[in-house]
Amino acid sequence: MDLFTYSYSYAGGEKLIDTELYNSIPASDIRKKWFTEHNAEGEQYELTNWWKFYNSKRIMGNREWYDDEVYMRVAEMYLINAEANARENNLPAARASLKALLDERDADAATTVAAMNQDALLDVIYFNWRLELWAEGRGLLTMKRYKKSITRCAEDAMLPGSTYSYDDKRLTFNIPEREITNNPNLGE
């Protein structure tokens, strides 16, 4: 999905951010620019991830897919720390981690962290999980941890407007019956 590497995105396939999530990004948040670009006529492109993965030295440069694989970004570490501390009601530590991330992303939002209670912190941390790690494979487990429902946007290619609850059976990978039968260490 990296537009700047030779991939389906470069060749015209698009992965679009959900419009509801995009519209919820404050104008003060620099991450909003990850999903916008304007062409020569001033028209905005679709909500693609033009700038999230930008590297000027790599435009069309990685046709062999030899780049490093990034398994965890520093932002994810801050979010893990903030969420764990917020869930344990260690609010000063949760605020410090969240503020450290937001200082780099949205200075206006960072100023509000000090006054947040546990519920407000968890809500903001959840929003930042969705935004910061958009399209990086963290959405399903984040949704399940927070027990949230997700409604697909109208632009969704497969199921526009469909709502999924965190406990929807379609979002759980089943263990094959043969594995359950042949593995005595698995409980039912």
Score class of each variant (00 low, 15 high):
Lys144Cys: 03
Asp108Cys: 00
Asn90Tyr: 05
Ile175Phe: 03
Trp134Gly: 01
Ile175Lys: 11
Tyr8Leu: 12
Glu83Gly: 03
Ile30His: 04
Trp134Val: 02
Leu186Met: 14
Asn39Glu: 12
Ala114Thr: 13
Glu64Thr: 04
Ala93Thr: 10
Arg95Tyr: 07
Arg130Val: 01
Lys52Phe: 03
Ile59Cys: 04
Leu21Ser: 09
Thr163Asn: 10
Glu37Arg: 05
Arg63Phe: 10
Pro176Thr: 11
Ala40Pro: 00
Lys144Ile: 09
Ser165Ala: 14
Asn23Thr: 04
Arg145Asn: 06
Ile175His: 09
Ala75His: 11
Glu83Val: 02
Cys153Asp: 15
Leu21Val: 08
Glu132His: 06
Tyr10Ile: 06
Gln44Tyr: 07
Tyr164Ser: 05
Met116Gly: 05
Ser9His: 08
Phe53Gln: 06
Ala120Val: 08
Glu64Pro: 00
Leu102Arg: 10
Trp34Ser: 03
Thr19Gly: 09
Arg138Asn: 07
Glu69Asn: 04
Glu188Thr: 10
Ala96Ile: 02
Glu83Pro: 00
Tyr126Val: 00
Arg170Lys: 12
Tyr10Phe: 12
Trp51Cys: 02
Glu179Phe: 03
Glu69Met: 08
Asp29Asn: 14
Asp68Tyr: 14
Asp108Gln: 08
Asn81His: 12
Trp65Gly: 00
Phe35Asn: 01
Thr48Trp: 07
Arg170Trp: 07
Tyr71Ile: 05
Trp129Cys: 02
Pro26Leu: 15
Asn182Val: 00
Asp29Tyr: 09
Met72Pro: 00
Gly13Thr: 07
Tyr45Thr: 12
Val124Thr: 06
Glu136Met: 02
Met1Phe: 10
Tyr45Glu: 12
Thr5Asn: 09
Trp65Ile: 01
Ala96His: 05
Lys32Asp: 04
Glu104Ile: 02
Val124Phe: 09
Ala110Cys: 02
Glu41Ala: 11
Asp29Lys: 09
Asp68Phe: 10
Asn128Gly: 05
Ser162Tyr: 13
